[in-house]
């Protein structure tokens, strides 16, 4: 079979499997999604209150833009979910990796395809939540056709950036099992420099400068900005380029680490 056609079929099967899994636990998944919006709703209430109290924009965001920022945040956060680095220890200990390694298909593809599949029910489940939040907080969106198109491309780009870097991070497990502290530090840096906590324009200029040279904002704030700020097509293209760069750098990091990691693998756990 044509290799591309084969890849497409495998991706399709894995994505379908993820969708079936999501539907199997649809109620639990829905509650999880609802639980996840608590964080942005808190941010949203705080910042819209501040913006309303000042009667002007805070860090370049009006109350309506803050509302839009955190509503889109909920989708981008869900799109960003990928195989957690903490999962590697489980994968190795339970022997799940053994099964993946005896298949003629790279485990990275398995994760990418599976989590891509998971996004389909996620988007469907997000729509009513977004509708309720829109009704409650009156956001202001920028919805020109190229912005909407750009947004749909960049949320997948964001997913791929995070997948690559989470994978590279998770591979540290092959060297040491005490990886929790390293992961926690990574997540803390990500929280600060991604725009997840607050839009980066609220941080001091040096933070914004550093953030440009890190992958985090391209996987979080950048896709959100596309629908909530009056951006230019040039900025969109530049951001897409940055996303591509970070995906490729992540892929390179995975590739370099994987070959060494797999030689160290002791295939414990059956």
């Amino acid at each position: 079979m044509n290799p591309l056609k084969r890849f497409w079929q495998i991706y399709q099967s894995l994505a379908q499997m993820a969708i079936l899994n999501q539907f199997q636990y649809r109620v639990a998944h829905y509650f999880y999604t609802i639980g996840m919006i608590t964080e942005p709703v808190v941010y949203l209430v705080v910042w819209t209150t501040i913006a309303n109290a000042r009667g002007s924009a805070v860090g370049g965001y009006t109350a309506a833009q803050f509302a839009a920022y955190y509503i889109i945040w909920t989708l981008v956060r869900s799109m960003n979910i990928t195989f957690t680095p903490y999962g590697w220890e489980w994968r190795i200990r339970q022997g799940a990796l053994n099964g993946m390694l005896t298949r003629p298909f790279h485990p990275l593809h398995e994760d990418v395809a599976y989590f891509m599949g998971m996004k389909i029910p996620t988007i469907i489940m997000w729509l009513p939540i977004a509708a309720v939040l829109t009704w409650a907080f009156k956001p202001e969106f920028y919805l020109s056709w190229w912005q909407v198109l750009g947004f749909f491309i960049t949320i997948w780009g964001a997913f791929l950036i995070r997948t690559m870097w989470m994978w590279a991070l998770g591979l540290i497990t092959f060297w040491t099992t005490r990886v929790g502290a390293i992961f926690e530090m990574y997540f803390m840096i990500e929280l600060l420099f991604s725009g997840r906590l607050v839009p980066l324009s609220l941080f001091p200029p040096w933070v914004q400068t550093v953030a440009i040279y890190l992958p985090f904002q391209w996987a979080f704030q950048f896709p959100i900005e596309i629908l909530v700020k009056p951006i230019t097509p040039q900025y969109l293209l530049w951001g897409l380029g940055m996303q591509l760069l970070w995906i490729l750098l992540g892929l390179l990091a995975v590739r370099l680490t994987w070959n060494t990691a797999i030689r160290r693998y002791s295939a414990v756990g059956g």
Partner: peptide, 19 residues
């Protein structure tokens, strides 16, 4: 095999992976 779905779905995946 995938724990939460029927084995038949996992078999279909193996069909695709093993070509």
């Amino acid at each position: 095999l995938n724990w939460d779905i029927p084995a038949l779905d996992s078999f279909k995946l193996n069909q695709a992976i093993f070509d």
